[in-house]
Nucleic acid binder design. Structure first.
Lengths: 187, 187
DNA sequence: GTCTATAAGCTGATAGAC
DNA sequence: GTCTATCAGCTTATAGAC
């Protein structure tokens, strides 16, 4: 891994652990083993490096979701697989957490990949739910966009509960809870 | 409002807007109009002031939830009222957001009120759901603790969606989504 | 109680040598 | 490409006068 790459990966880790406000260029340099001048050679500054890190993290998240949501299986099975996937609940969501960062939200460039990721995810889940409805796997009572928003919200809120409780089980409980609610509308 | 009080209220606002890591004693002093020495007279330092602010914010949240959950009306009505209550979705949850703050989570004293608030809320919702089940308002298929966790998670995740989208409507959609799912189990 | 002075270390860079 | 030097301003206090 070259220096530029190590800088991006270190920035991704620190943004996940400490957010944008809590991550200093110096901390990134130390974790990556790069010097001061080296970082400013590869990136214009903190926002530029953060953008590279955030973009990669967002692409990653999207890639993994797409793999599960387009896998073989019935629509509801695919959604269940996606929701139940093992996540490091106590670390929080590397994309969702940036939503709480005032300096990220204030910068349209940094904010864009986050906005796009969630817009894409909600749309993708809405589409899979529509598939389920067409195939008769899901009843016709649900508003699909609302349901998709609820699913994404349960994941994001599950991270909050897990961190608050200091227990990854809280995340699993929230997911189980929404799947239990879904069961009244399936088949 | 005396100086001590203004310091606490300013700290609450800044913790909500910028989190613990993003809030400096200087910023609190400027917002409150108190001087350097004044702040350190009333509080031992940043963690001590933050604890006063967080405790008050947590008590507030709990008080408002209790008022709605113990109001007149059927259990499901009360839960619906609680979930649908007007919230400033774009500002995020003043308690939940602290969950993302590494320095808060690393300090057991600062962390305690957050952990307690969510534990209390989940328990309280579980109890109201149990009431609903006893009264036949809710079917017997749901795991109540899981369902309660899902409700709290939808609220917390709803804030994330709203901030990501830059639109408070995303929060409302998530709440509507989970209430739609709940409808399959009511009555 | 509130004020000013002081301080060691961090923040987010820029400049220029190697 | 990487390194060291430098910098103005912020961070989180402590000390002591008023």
């Amino acid at each position: 891994m070259d220096t530029r790459e190590r800088l991006i990966e270190s920035a991704r880790e620190l943004l996940w652990e400490r957010g944008y406000v809590g991550t200093s260029p110096k901390a990134v340099q130390q974790r990556s083993g790069a010097g001061q001048g080296s970082m400013y050679h590869h990136f214009r500054g903190k926002p530029d490096l953060a953008l590279a890190a955030i973009t990669r993290t967002a692409d990653d998240l999207r890639g993994r979701a797409e793999a599960e949501l387009s896998a073989p299986g019935s629509p509801i099975q695919r959604i269940t697989t996606y929701l139940r996937r093992e996540r490091e609940a106590l670390r929080g969501c590397p994309v969702g957490r940036l939503t709480q960062d005032p300096d990220v939200m204030a910068d349209p460039t940094l904010r864009a990949p986050i906005e796009e990721t969630f817009a894409w995810l909600r749309k993708r889940l809405t589409d899979v739910l529509a598939e389920a409805q067409r195939q008769g796997e899901l009843d016709g009572e649900l508003d699909l966009a609302d349901t998709a928003a609820a699913f994404v919200a349960v994941l994001q809120g599950g991270y909050v509960l897990a961190r608050a409780a200091g227990d990854a089980g809280a995340y699993t409980q929230a997911v189980d809870g929404v799947l239990g609610l879904l069961s009244g509308h399936v088949r």
